[in-house]
Nucleic acid binder design. Sequence first.
DNA 1: GTACTATATTCTACTTATTGAATATAGTAC
DNA 2: GTACTATATTCAATAAGTAGAATATAGTAC
Lengths: 185, 185
Amino acid sequence: MSLKHGLLGLLNYGVMSGYELNKAFNASLGFFWQGQASQIYRELAAMERSGWLTSERVVQEDKPSKKLYALTEAGKKALAEWLADPDGGVAEALRVRSAFLMRVFFGGETPPVETIALIRAFRDESEKALRALGATSASVAEYAQTVPDENKIKYWRLVAKFGDGYYRAAVEWARKALAELEAKL
Amino acid sequence: MSLKHGLLGLLNYGVMSGYELNKAFNASLGFFWQGQASQIYRELAAMERSGWLTSERVVQEDKPSKKLYALTEAGKKALAEWLADPDGGVAEALRVRSAFLMRVFFGGETPPVETIALIRAFRDESEKALRALGATSASVAEYAQTVPDENKIKYWRLVAKFGDGYYRAAVEWARKALAELEAKL
DNA sequence: GTACTATATTCTACTTATTGAATATAGTAC
DNA sequence: GTACTATATTCAATAAGTAGAATATAGTAC
């Protein structure tokens, strides 16, 4: 489970509330890990019980009170151990889990137009995702100019490039698949 | 949840036991959906309770008895509805969930050699997956010659091509990432 | 004053997935 | 006869994720 480690990694940059963590998570790690806000709060509570975090209630004047979480030594150790794991979820990273591909697999059981419509929707979504990622990369590049911590940003860019390659492969696949299926209509 | 629909789709080709379904599932749908044998048995029991399947105990002479599952009318209807769903998990299909990418994201927190080792392992796994998929495609091509149900096989090939594109993108990304990181050592 | 948005957190119910052990029969290899 | 593999199914414990409601404060728009 990596939601906890993502949260540890973000808290390593500084103290944050659950609400802030949720936003930071979606903005940075959201491309390759998604979590409901409720799950993030739940994990934070569990990690505090495990002694990885401490929390401090902060009363605000113009907004509701918030709970700031901070890493403990045990939390830093847990993060360091996860970072040092030589396996690092490599095998799992190649696994695809896609109801969409399962649907395409059974395409022979439906009229071709239905599968074509589905792949068109997939192509459109892939193109949208590619454009959205371009916007994210642009904001990273902008951020890189103001806070030139090249050591961190280098890896952020690598992850964004993975997304770029993945979405491009998806778009290309969908276009070829459609060309093939539409030709036989 | 698509484990059930994958099982429905396979049972639509003919009656099978949980054991046979498990093997058939891994051999065909295994690329884009993975399930433990125990979960497959559990789903089958749940689907029988839902009235989608019936089961019949078959005593075998040289092997333990098995339970053959068959689609009911309600099961066929459930499969047809899933196949006809115009959404078909398209948005979900673009979602990436990867602890590996999260680890790369935080690469700046560790010595570069560790992240390099991790990406090398990823590259090796991706190349292995690409070769394994080539073997699968070859067996599909072979199968296509003996049972030329071109209508079904067309879609199987499409799914395999998606895997091919995905793994190629992964290998290419890893190679470029390594070239970049290794140059700065 | 009504609706809406943003901030901030908690909780419940449910579903889905992982892990591994337990149980049982029969054939093959050494 | 011992170990191993293949066939075949079941169960229990746990972990993780989904979905959405509930609660509360404060600012903005109309």
